[in-house]
Simulated scan of single mutants.
Amino acid sequence: MKGLKQRWGLTSNWQLAIIFVVFAITGSASAWLSKPFCVWLGIAKEGLGHWYTPIRLLLIFPIYQVLLVAIGFLFGQFKFFWAFEKKMLRSMGLGFIFKK
Rank of each mutant, 00 (worst) to 15 (best):
F61H: 07
P36Y: 00
F37L: 13
A70N: 07
R90Y: 09
W40H: 05
I60T: 10
E46Y: 11
F96I: 09
I60L: 04
I25Y: 02
A31K: 13
P54A: 02
L16D: 12
L48A: 11
L10D: 11
F75E: 07
T53S: 15
K99G: 06
F96G: 14
M88C: 03
A29R: 01
A31C: 10
L10Q: 10
G27A: 01
A44H: 15
G9E: 03
F75S: 06
G27K: 01
L41A: 05
M1R: 11
N13K: 08
G42T: 01
L10W: 13
L59Q: 06
F23D: 07
Y64W: 09
W82G: 09
F61I: 04
I63D: 03
G93S: 01
P54S: 10
G95I: 00
I43K: 04
E46A: 14
G49D: 09
S28H: 14
L94V: 03
I71G: 06
W14E: 15
L48S: 04
Q77D: 04
R90H: 08
I55P: 08
F61S: 07
F75G: 05
A17R: 09
G42P: 10
T53E: 14
M88S: 10
G76C: 02
K45T: 13
P62K: 01
Y64S: 03
W14L: 15
A70C: 10
G95L: 02
P62G: 10
V39Y: 02
G95P: 00
Q65D: 12
I19F: 02
R56C: 11
A31M: 13
Q65H: 09
M1E: 12
C38A: 12
A44D: 15
T53A: 15
L41I: 06
S30P: 01
K87Y: 10
